[in-house]
Nucleic acid binder design. Structure first.
Lengths: 100, 100
DNA sequence: TTGATATATCGAGATTTATCAATATGTTTG
DNA sequence: CAAACATATTGATAAATCTCGATATATCAA
């Protein structure tokens, strides 16, 4: 994995709330209420639920999720007006392997 | 691994030069000249060699190495007036495992 | 002990990041 | 289409980080 990508991923992880989000998304059903429209967690969790859990502003969370998606840590899927985010396990594994 | 430690380690890795140092130390003999007094790399590489390779100031490198040691990424050993730094493979492995 | 060398710490200015409110964009539904 | 809702972007300020030169501390060697 390219050094610049390692740096960008590390920057994402180096913020306590972003790290929490990454951890919550490992098992969404343990940390978030069920969705109403999309009745599963296959694509992760919608931004609103994440925002509510963090108590940070909507714009901050949107920025966080966007930067985590940009470096590949998260995969986002749009369902209507909702954006869902899930972990990109492949990339996380690659990141871990690069460091070892 | 505690979230705060993950954050501190990530902060260290999120700087391009600190990441390079961490990578160089994986195989010191490929990246640094042999030492004169301590004639092996068992304890890693002395701060001066690392500083010369980076072209950053002595104080900057000293700070970098110190913060990497403080969070456990590096292990330092003093030999006389030289400080040697090597990777803490155990902690790096723990960090990787925590993320996966 | 003194001078030379290696490393650590301090103080400061420049850059980056954190975080918000306000606003814009996109999507659904009446 | 218009209102309502979810998300994204912009602009701004406070806080943190980067990086240096200067200086302090530690150790060796003469």
């Amino acid at each position: 994995m390219d050094d610049r990508l390692v740096v960008d991923i590390s920057k994402c992880i180096s913020n306590p709330m972003r790290l929490k989000i990454l951890n919550w998304l490992r098992q969404p059903e343990n940390h978030f209420p069920p969705h109403n429209v999309v009745r599963h967690f296959n694509d992760g969790v919608c931004a609103t639920y994440i925002q509510e859990k963090t108590n940070l502003s909507q714009s901050t969370i949107s920025t966080y999720l966007s930067m985590m998606e940009k470096c590949g840590l998260l995969i986002s899927t749009r369902h209507g007006k909702w954006s869902y985010f899930k972990r990109n396990e492949t990339l996380i594994q690659q990141y871990a392997n690069t460091l070892i």
